[in-house]
Write a protein that binds this DNA or RNA. Structure first.
Lengths: 191, 191
DNA sequence: CACAAAACCGAGCAAGCGCTAGTTAACCTA
DNA sequence: TAGGTTAACTAGCGCTTGCTCGGTTTTGTG
């Protein structure tokens, strides 16, 4: 049995699975729950995916691919180091908000992936974080920040990723301002 | 059947459960695995806990109670706002390292708690975060930082909590320095 | 040393789990 | 309209899960 990984139907199912995995967790979401939400019977699920873990993989992969795309686009049209740091942070927030389900799942359900799946996704994550390495290095060379670059990167990404725990886009704080504050924090500028 | 919540044996079991929940996740850790690691049979587990979820609750509660204790101690003997921010960050890192298992579980397995358990633990979390509210307000009144205090708190706690993802205490970076960098970041000071 | 309390054992139940097998129905294309 | 492809269905297998319960052993104490 071979599956069509790019089928339109499959993409719909992945989005539905992302929602359930995000809300209830991977392990507590049964294939029957997934099938119900998809409007099919549980057996039919395995026409689209080889097993349950493959659905989890597909959810996380889709979120990461989209994140990489958005970040590359933002950096391609931006020149100065400080602005590049800003658009990267802003892009990070965008993906965190747009594909919130997928990214929450990536953070919380990582350990339910097989080792093989993890290895593949680590490559995607590294490809994404390479953007951060580049931009932080640019800021460093421009004299905008001092010290351990990987430490700056980890602290910045930590502060950003933690926003899924508390940030509500319908509140007073908008993502643009949030990204600005984060840049000011990393570059030690009053704002 | 009434259980002794403060029994010594129970505390040992909670520490063992924390380790398993941290390494494999709550849902994928079976009561049989727990019992094995504890050196008893699965049925005997329910002599100490009413149900599996109660073990999860006990793990998280113990971590939070310890964190509150450490933070209070650190603040009790420290005066100036900047130093208080430092010792609070340093205490946060200490608990994150000493009770790593419990805190990882608190972050990742929150959703497996019953609503009732969550409500109880939210009170503990609020009690802990009240320290951060206080100290950040002190820094603000001393003119050390400007702007939205809760935003500063969320970004700082995010950067700190994310350390469980990457920080290895056996590496070059020691916790003291890490806490210093974090304070500098929050207060926008070069370091 | 008696005896209550605490800790543990061993067997197993009822429910739910991921997944499979075999089949049917709708749709496209030659 | 025949043949193939895709997507869905029904039914249920084999196993694991959290948890129960009656009985037994160990431990602490007056």
């Amino acid at each position: 049995m071979k599956l069509n990984k790019n089928s339109k139907r499959r993409k719909e199912l992945v989005a539905i699975a992302a929602r359930l995995f995000c809300n209830q967790g991977y392990e507590t979401t049964t294939v029957r729950m997934l099938a119900d939400a998809m409007g099919i019977k549980s057996g039919s699920l395995f026409h689209h995916f080889n097993d349950k873990q493959e659905i989890l993989y597909a959810v996380i992969e889709s979120g990461m691919l989209h994140a990489i795309e958005i970040a590359q686009q933002a950096l391609a049209i931006t020149q100065t180091p400080k602005k590049r740091l800003y658009v990267l942070a802003r892009a990070h927030l965008s993906t965190l908000l747009e594909d919130r389900d997928a990214h929450v799942v990536a953070i919380y359900e990582w350990r339910s992936l097989t080792q093989e799946s993890r290895n593949l996704l680590v490559k995607l994550r590294d490809a994404y974080e390479a953007n951060w390495c580049t931009v932080i290095n640019e800021c460093s060379e421009a004299g905008l920040l001092q010290g351990d670059q990987s430490l700056h990167r980890h602290l910045a990404l930590g502060a950003l990723n933690w926003t899924v725990q508390w940030y509500k886009p319908e509140g007073q704080l908008n993502p643009d301002t949030l990204a600005e504050v984060l840049v000011a924090m990393v570059l030690r500028e009053k704002n």
